[in-house]
Amino acid sequence: MFVKQVSIFLENKPGRIYDVIKLLGTNNIDIKALSIADTDQFGIARLILNKPNTAFNILKENNFIVKINDVIAITVSNKPGGLIDALSLLYNNNIGIEYMYAFVGDSDINASVILKVDNMEDAFKLFEKNGIKLLSSSLVHEKD
């Protein structure tokens, strides 16, 4: 059902994202999507990874503040207006978006979007019922 997202605290100083990316790279973790949220004080790196649990443990061992939480991943057609249907469903049902980011998947035809909303269960059911393509966690994650 939901996809696992790994969030990492980034202190506002040079080299912090580099440290994260290097650590994941040397441990053979594949980054499927990456988004950085930042304030003038600190940042949060949000990552969709092939092996979220393995990555979580490695990051922890290396003293990062890290957290795993559920997000919804949907696939929309990679053309103008592709996202409209999904967002209008949320809007019409009064579901607020906390954050979202997009990533290009394996094909050029579809794009994928990660969503965190204030009512995850309802949003998921709504998408399911209305034919929005949901990316299952087995498609995104590998065994870890």
Partner: peptide, 18 residues
């Protein structure tokens, strides 16, 4: 120093705590 208790994937939650 940031701790596990304080951290969240949501910026607003952290800012509220700060």
């Amino acid at each position: 120093e940031m701790g596990d208790d304080l951290f969240s994937d949501d910026i607003r939650t952290i800012e509220k705590a700060t």
